[in-house]
Structure formats: structure tokens, C-alpha cells
Design a protein around this nucleic acid. Structure first.
Length: 219
DNA sequence: AAGCATGCCAACCGCGGACTT
DNA sequence: AAAGTCCGCGGTTGGCATGCT
């Protein structure tokens, strides 16, 4: 069969217009078909990315507000590099934007703060980390009262959480019993179990956390 | 003014999971 | 059940803009 030549690199305004018009007319989904039928010489993945990150309605561009920044920091502390999950809590922001913002602004700031804190406390950085997680760069203490409590009772019928539940349940973050996550974290969140020292770790049930994250209370 | 270094961000790549045949 | 395809994710790279020497 004849392989189409795939164009790469920056998108031109004409290409944006074509893709936008096509998606608005035919809808999202099946990006391989979109790229073919719209006449764009782009791969399906490229079309999808461009639409999702730039052309979609309600995309928010520009600098992050302090509130957004704070939310990113706190979410990253909880979730690690789950950019799509974090972006889901920031209306109009994309995972790519959140990821870039973290890598260019917050990550640097945090490692600096981390070094200062460790030097001041004179303790080992891995101390009190109870389980493997992707939160290796997150150490700064957020404002405890700003995080809403998780739901008290698990709603078992909430199947809209399946995607996040699947992601949250990735094996590398599961403990031996497969039931709970324990993240090294020094935040004083209501998530913490009463018996646990707030300054050392946060413990929560996956089944509780996922619907909680999915609730609008966090936005 | 020119060359180099650094910062930033858009886009690509590879992988894994879900879905379809 | 197996193979193929699609989709979405996180990591990484390329290139432009800006600052510094």
C-alpha cells in the first residue's frame, strides 16, 4: 500500500483552520480518519494533540494564576506526574501545559526549596516516604485547610471514574495489600489518618480518593 | 554587534491499555 | 483467544526567544 507522507513540525494557521473546521463539523474521534479526510498531511496523533491542546474551545492560554499554581503543587504532591489528572482539575488547562509549567517553573523552585529545607532540618530526604510514588520532587508544605475532605462513603455506582480509577491503580503505586496508597507527603490534609503524624505522610483509600478528585469541589 | 547560554514551550515519540475484528 | 488498531499518557526533544558576556 502507498504510505502517505506525514508532515511534522509547527502547525500553520491554515492547518489549524482546516482541522478546527473539520472537527467542528464531524466531531472528535478516530483521528486517523480525521487526518486523512480533512486533507491535512498530519498524523492522527498530531491532529489529536493539536486539537486537544490548542484548538479545542475553552482552552485557557497564558500565565497561571497563583491559585492554579498552588493547586498544581498540591495535586502533584498527591498524584505525582499524572498530568492529565492534574489538568483535569484546572478548567481550560491541558496536561501538556501543566507538565511544561511544572518542568520549567515549579520543579526548579521546588528542588531549590527542598535543598534549603533539607539543609535546615538536616534530615534525609527519603525519610518517612512510605511507598514508591512519582512524587520525588514534591516536598513543600501547602496550606492544609485549602484541601476539601474526601467523601465519607464510597459511591460504588460511580462508573465515570473508571478511567481515573484505572490510572490510580497502576501497579507501581500499589502496596502489597492492593488496597491503599501511601504517599510520602508532609501536608496536613484531612486525608490523613488521625493516628498518622501530619508532617510525615498521607494515607488514603483509592476508592475514596478517586471520586473525590472527580468531584467539582476540588476545582 | 556578535556569539553563546539558558529558558520556554510546542510537538514528537514510545509505550501500554482498551477496544475491535 | 489472538492479532490488529486506536487512543491517551508521560517523557523527551527541537527550535525560537531572550538574556548575558
Amino acid at each position: 500500500m502507498k504510505a502517505r507522507k506525514i508532515k511534522k513540525g509547527l502547525w500553520r494557521p491554515e492547518e489549524d483552520m482546516i482541522l478546527k473546521q473539520y472537527v467542528e463539523t464531524h466531531g472528535e474521534g478516530n483521528w486517523a480518519v480525521v487526518s486523512h479526510k480533512s486533507g491535512l498531511k498530519r498524523g492522527g496523533k498530531s491532529c489529536r494533540l493539536r486539537w486537544k491542546n490548542y484548538l479545542r474551545p475553552n482552552i485557557k492560554r497564558g500565565g497561571m494564576s497563583p491559585e492554579e499554581e498552588d493547586l498544581i503543587i498540591r495535586m502533584h504532591k498527591l498524584l505525582g506526574n499524572r498530568w492529565s489528572l492534574i489538568a483535569g482539575r484546572l478548567p481550560g488547562r491541558t496536561d501538556n501545559e501543566v507538565k511544561n509549567y511544572w518542568n520549567t517553573h515549579l520543579n526548579k523552585r521546588h528542588s531549590l526549596h527542598k535543598r534549603k529545607t533539607l539543609a535546615a532540618n538536616g534530615r534525609h530526604e527519603d525519610e518517612n516516604i512510605s511507598a514508591t510514588s512519582a512524587t520525588d520532587t514534591a516536598t513543600e508544605a501547602p496550606t492544609p485547610q485549602s484541601i476539601p475532605p474526601p467523601p465519607a462513603i464510597h459511591n460504588g455506582s460511580n462508573d465515570s471514574d473508571s478511567t481515573e480509577a484505572m490510572m490510580m491503580g497502576r501497579k507501581e503505586e500499589r502496596l502489597e495489600d492492593g488496597e491503599r496508597f501511601v504517599y510520602g507527603c508532609d501536608m496536613g490534609s484531612p486525608l490523613s489518618m488521625p493516628a498518622i503524624n501530619y508532617s510525615t505522610s498521607v494515607v488514603f483509600d483509592e476508592e475514596l480518593l478517586v471520586p473525590w478528585l472527580d468531584s467539582s469541589a476540588f476545582v
